[in-house]
Design a protein around this nucleic acid. Sequence first.
DNA 1: CAATCAACCTGGGTGC
DNA 2: TGCACCCAGGTTGATT
Length: 263
Amino acid sequence: MVRDLRARLPGRRITGVDIAFTGSIGYPEPRELVDRVVGQEIVTISRRGKYAVLGLASDDRLIVHRGMTGSLLVRRRGDDLESHVRLTFLLDNDGELRFRDMRKFGRVLLMHSGERALPFEKMGPEPLRRSFTAARLAGSLQGRSGLLKPLLLGQRVVAGLGNIYVDEALFHSRIHPRRVAGSLSEAEVGRLHRAIRSVLNAAIEGRGTTFRSYEDINGNAGAFQSRLAAYGRVGEPCRRCGWPIERIVVGGRGTYFCPHCQI
DNA sequence: CAATCAACCTGGGTGC
DNA sequence: TGCACCCAGGTTGATT
């Protein structure tokens, strides 16, 4: 999503904001956000964990989290309005950036670059950067008595993993999702580290996973769902050993795994 | 501090 | 058809 936005938005100026649901704005008050955003040029597009960051010429940053069902759409003025569009940023080229979010769990925030961005404060390393090493992962898991999967979902050990990609990473590293985090051997941590990176790289390459509502900035589905090995495949044969994939609940989240391969 | 769990929302699917 | 119930790519704040 960020790569697509980067090809379309830099250089555009925001000429207005239409707010259909104020709850989608997390900070500051809607009035202030509009005042600070209108007239500003979008200069940079970046990402931290699951947050997209739109850098404005004023050094304010628009920070977007899609929640469970959110999407950002780049449309032309007058294009048919999708359902559940909560915010619309009007652009100076007759375009629009629409924030669509059925379940209203997504948020848009505006923070100055000097301001401490709370969502980022306790976030762990970027999984695709060199600073995320197997040794660092091992150090973060060591001594932890909680379950591995909820820890990986917590964004503090490593940023950006959600329920689908955690299940996929655990499948490919052949680790049971109910393992205690601190119990992994060095070899297992190495496999997990490698699997996290390969799964994320493959999912980005596949332009995302459309299991239900994920859509890119043009409204198109991703393609990675066809390459999922565990998530959502309950009852279907494991791609490694043929045993039926099972669904259990771990940390309150639906969890798919192969009870034969994942120890 | 760490772990657990309800709460926030809307809609799709299933079974009776 | 209607209705109850379960499930869903996430995070946070209250409670153990």
